[in-house]
Simulated scan of single mutants.
Amino acid sequence: MANSRFRPINFLPLVFCFLIVPLTESSSDTNSVYSPCSDAKIQRKDGFSFGIAFAGYSEFLPNSSSNSPQLSPCDRRLSLSSANSQVAVFRPKVDEISLLTINTSNFFPDSYGGYMVAFAGRKYAARSRPTFVANSSHIVTSFTLVLEFKKGTLQNLYWKRFGCALCSGNGAFVCINNQYCAIRTSSCKNRGGNIDCSLGIQLSFSGTDKHDSVFNSWYEVKNLRQYSLFGLYSNLRDSLTSQFNKFF
């Protein structure tokens, strides 16, 4: 009998999303699970579906209590489908470094609570901790997310923070809590400014697949940060969103 606590949630149309790696070819994708609220056992080069929910911090807690355990957005006890929330779904290729981009020209995260949680799975109900995205004053536009697997099953999702070293000395950014490089919302294009405040999420994988093959992409991301090429890679987000905006 199905677990009554879990059911498919209503995924709302959110924004256009980019992948800078090639889409998964059907011949190499052995994963037939497409819902982020279902369990999948994957191998390298498969596609893997996961979601990112945007809502207020307390919306990810039952009864909105700070002492309550955090639940997966797939858990019906959260009632995110009836709350002020939005959900984006992605399907990157496993163990490829991907850059996911959420265009904010018609969507601003502070209108939906200002926090986001990455999630996937049913039995393990893996979910990240809520991470700050935006409020009425500032928005964080660059994130790194690591998906951790054990024998092909997702165990956890981590938002990695690298402090404010990368934005030090850049007047367009503000360092928040020595953790986030944020942009003043008044500087964003959809708030009267001229800065593209689209969200960029660098995605990588750690752990092992169902054949015990070790994922390398998180190790590669850590090494990439040591070189100037990391800045070039990160700037692809701006290039992609600029090209997208030309069509609309």
Rank of each mutant, 00 (worst) to 15 (best):
F247D: 07
G192D: 13
G169P: 04
M1C: 12
S79G: 06
V89M: 12
N156V: 00
K210I: 14
V221I: 14
N156F: 09
L240A: 15
L199W: 01
N190P: 03
G200N: 11
A55Y: 07
K189A: 15
L154G: 03
G193H: 04
F205N: 03
N63V: 10
S142M: 07
P130W: 09
R129S: 11
T208A: 11
Q243T: 11
S32H: 03
K160W: 02
V146I: 09
S234C: 03
I183E: 04
S213R: 10
S242W: 08
F247R: 03
Q226D: 08
F90N: 01
A88H: 01
L157T: 11
S72H: 06
N84F: 09
D29L: 08
G152L: 06
G207L: 09
V15F: 01
N216Q: 15
Y57E: 15
T153R: 12
D196S: 07
S242A: 12
T104M: 13
F16Y: 06
R91V: 10
C181V: 07
F162R: 08
R225E: 01
A2M: 04
F90S: 02
S35K: 01
P130H: 06
G121L: 07
Y124A: 11
Q43W: 00
G231C: 02
D29M: 09
D110H: 14
F18N: 14
F90Q: 02
I42S: 01
K150Q: 06
D209H: 03
I9C: 04
Q155E: 15
V174L: 10
Q226S: 08
A172W: 00
T131A: 06
R77W: 06
P69Q: 13
S66D: 10
L14P: 00
S206E: 13
D196M: 09
S242M: 10
V94H: 02
S64Q: 12
P130D: 04
D95N: 15
F230L: 03
N67F: 09
S142F: 04
W159T: 03
S4Q: 10
F107D: 04
F247M: 04
R91H: 01
E25Q: 08
D39C: 07
